[in-house]
Nucleic acid binder design. Structure first.
Lengths: 349, 349
DNA sequence: ATGAAAGCGCTAACAT
DNA sequence: ATGTTAGCGCTTTCAT
C-alpha cells in the first residue's frame, strides 16, 4: 500500500478553476475578499481533485505548525500505574483538536532523552509545549525554557526560586488537603495521620503543607512518607500502626496510597471507618469506588486541567499572531491557574 | 515573551564555514564524501551558531516527515481505566525515538473525529499510522486504508472479511485463554465459568473462543457477558453464582474483571482458591498483584506489542524509500505478528 | 570533493 | 477583487 499518489498542488487546482494560485490560496484559507462565483469554482476544483494543502510548504512560509508538543517526564513508570496521565492527555487532545492543532507526544525516560527533547523543541517543529514537570530539580523545565518555546506546565514546577513568566495549571493541593484533614477533625478524630506522596513532587509537598496547616502541632510520628503507590501506602500504614497504635484517621496523599493503607488496615483487623477513618486524594474512579469500603476523597478535575493547559497555551500563541480576526482584546500574558478541589464523601470517612 | 529568535539557516552556516550550502547540507545529513577538514569546519560553525535544520523546508523536498500518527479510538472512556493504552504508547514511543521519528497522537471520540483523522492522514503530514482498532464495525480502519497511508494495527481489526495486506500485532488471546482454562482443569475443577470481555472487541471474542476450545460442551450458563470493567465483573459473577451455585472456577477476560469477581466472591463468603479458583488476563501489575488474593493470570507483553507495531511500520516505510523508484514491488511486505502469552501463577488459582 | 542552481508547494506583498 | 512575483530553507542533480 505504498502507492505514491501524485498529490495535486495549488497550481493544479488553480489551472482547473481557471484562476491564479493566489486566489486558490485565499479560498482555501477562508476565502475573504473573493467573489462568490470564484469561491464556488475553486471549491469545486478542490473537491474534484481531492486537494489537501501541503503543510510543510505552508509552514515554511507561515512559520506556524499548528502543532504543540506534550512532554511527559516519567523517570518512574509510576505515571502509567494510574490513569492520571491518560486523563490529562485527553483533556489536552480535546482542546487542541477543537482548535485544529496537532499533538506531538514526547515521552522521556532519562538524561539523554532530555537533550533530545530540548533539541526538538528548539528545532521549531512545534508552536508551543505542554510540559509535565513532575519532579524537583528536574533539568527539563530549564532546558525547555531555554529552547524559547512558549510553554505551559502541568503542575507547579518544582524548581527553586520561582521564575517570572512561568505559567502552570495545578490543583489546589494544599487547600484540598486542608479540607480533607478538617473533615477528619470534624468527625471527632484527634490522632490524624498523613501518608505523604513522593516528596520530590510539588503536589506531595503541597498536600503535606495542607495537612500541617490544620494539624499545627502534629506529632511528627503521625507523618509517614510514601510514594503515591499502593505498596508505599501499605508500608507507611504498617509503620503508622506500629508507631502510633492509637491513630484514628489517615489522610493519604492519593487514592492509590489509600487503597494500600486500607488493605493493611483490613489485615490488622481494624474497621474502617469505625476504628479508623481514611481519606484519599484524586477521586480516581476505578480506584476510589472499588475499594472496600469506598473511599472518601478529594476530587480534582484532571481532564479539565489538561484542557485548561491547552487553552492557556493556545491563547498565548494567538497573542503573538493577533490579526484583526478573532476580535480578542489581547494584552495580558496568561497567568497560572490553580483549580479548586472538592471533597467527595463515600464510606471510608 | 514570544521572542522570535532569528534562527540561523544553512546559508548562515555556509557563510561562516566558508563553504557552499550544499556542503553544509551534506555534513548535516551524515557527511558522506566531504573532506574531514571541511566536515570539521562545518561542524564548528553549526555549533557556534546553534544551527538546527528547518524540518518544514526539509520535508518539502524530501517528502518525509519522520513522524507517524498513533490513532486511538476510544468511544468508551474505558481505555483510560486501565494502563493498557499508556503501556503500549510507551513501547511505541521508545521504538520511534530510537529511529528519530516523532509521535503524533490522534485521539478520537466520535463520528466527526473520524473524518478529521481521515483528512489528517490523507493530508500527508505523517509517514505512516499506528491504529488501535478496538471495536467491530469500526469505520475508522476503512477510512484509514483509503487514506493510503502505510498502517499497522494494534490488535486484530474487527472487520468482516479479512482484507489482504492488513498488518497487525496482537497477543495470542485464544491460546492464552486455552492455557488459562486448561490450568483450571488441571487443578481438578470441572465447573469452569467464563466472564467475557466486551464482545465487540476481537480480543474478547478470541478469549471466549479459547475457552470454548477447551470446554467443548460447556454448559452455556457458565458463560456470563461483561465488558472488561470491575463493575461488569461483579455483575457477571453474581449472575454466575445465581445460575450455577456449584461453579468452582472462573476465567475472567481480564484482570479488572477478575478483581470485580473476587470482590463479589469475598462478599458471598466463598474462599479463593479453595472454594473457587479465579484466573485473569493481562497481568496488569497494579491490579493483579494487589488483589486479595493475588491473581493468577495470563500475561501479555503490552509494551512489546507497541514496540513491535512501530518496528513493523518503520520497516515498511524503509522498504518504500530504499528503492527510490515508484511502484516497484520490492522485498517482502511485513506481515502480522501474534505474540505468545504466558501463565503467571499467583494465589488465586 | 565541492559548488551552482533549480525547484519542493505555499503565502504574502505588491500590482493591477 | 484578482493576478504577479518573490521568496521561506532545504535537498539534489549537474557541473566542475
Amino acid at each position: 500500500m505504498t502507492d505514491t499518489a501524485p498529490r495535486p498542488t495549488l497550481e493544479a487546482v488553480a489551472a482547473r478553476a481557471g484562476v491564479s494560485r493566489a486566489t486558490v490560496s485565499r479560498v482555501v484559507n477562508g476565502g475573504d475578499g473573493v467573489r462568490d462565483a470564484l469561491v464556488e469554482r475553486v471549491r469545486k476544483a478542490v473537491d474534484e481533485l481531492g486537494y489537501v494543502p501541503n503543510q510543510a510548504a505552508r509552514s515554511l512560509v507561515t512559520r506556524r505548525h499548528d502543532a504543540i508538543a506534550v512532554v511527559v517526564a516519567e523517570p518512574e513508570t509510576r505515571v502509567f500505574a494510574d490513569p492520571f496521565f491518560a486523563l490529562q492527555l485527553r483533556g489536552i487532545s480535546k482542546e487542541l483538536t477543537a482548535h485544529d492543532n496537532q499533538l506531538v507526544l514526547l515521552l522521556t525516560e532519562g538524561r539523554d532523552d532530555h537533550a533530545r527533547v530540548g533539541r526538538y523543541l528548539a528545532g521549531g517543529h512545534v508552536d508551543g509545549a505542554l510540559v509535565f514537570s513532575l519532579h524537583l530539580h528536574d533539568p527539563l523545565p530549564e532546558l525547555i525554557q531555554r529552547a524559547g518555546v512558549p510553554t505551559v506546565f502541568g503542575g507547579r514546577p518544582g524548581w527553586s526560586g520561582d521564575r517570572q513568566g512561568v505559567v502552570y495549571v495545578d490543583s489546589d493541593n494544599r487547600g484540598g488537603a486542608r479540607d480533607a484533614v478538617r473533615h477528619l477533625a470534624g468527625l471527632g478524630r484527634t490522632r490524624i495521620a498523613h501518608i505523604t506522596g513522593a516528596l520530590d513532587q510539588t503536589s506531595a509537598a503541597d498536600r503535606l503543607d495542607g495537612y500541617r496547616d490544620v494539624m499545627v502541632d502534629a506529632d511528627p510520628r503521625l507523618i509517614a512518607e510514601a510514594d503515591f503507590t499502593p505498596a508505599g501506602g501499605e508500608r507507611a500504614m504498617r509503620e503508622l500502626l506500629d508507631r502510633c497504635p492509637d491513630v484514628d484517621a489517615v489522610f493519604a496523599a492519593n487514592d492509590l496510597t489509600a487503597s494500600g493503607a486500607l488493605r493493611v488496615l483490613r489485615e490488622s483487623g481494624r474497621r474502617v471507618p469505625d476504628d479508623i477513618a481514611v481519606i484519599g486524594f484524586d477521586d480516581m474512579l476505578p480506584v476510589a469506588e472499588q475499594t472496600d469500603p469506598p473511599l472518601t476523597t478529594v476530587r480534582q478535575d484532571i481532564e479539565e486541567m489538561g484542557r485548561l493547559m491547552a487553552r492557556l497555551l493556545l491563547r498565548e500563541l494567538d497573542r503573538g499572531t493577533s490579526h484583526g480576526g478573532s476580535g480578542e482584546a489581547t494584552g495580558d500574558t496568561p497567568s497560572s491557574v490553580v483549580l479548586p478541589t472538592t471533597l467527595v464523601r463515600r464510606a471510608s470517612a
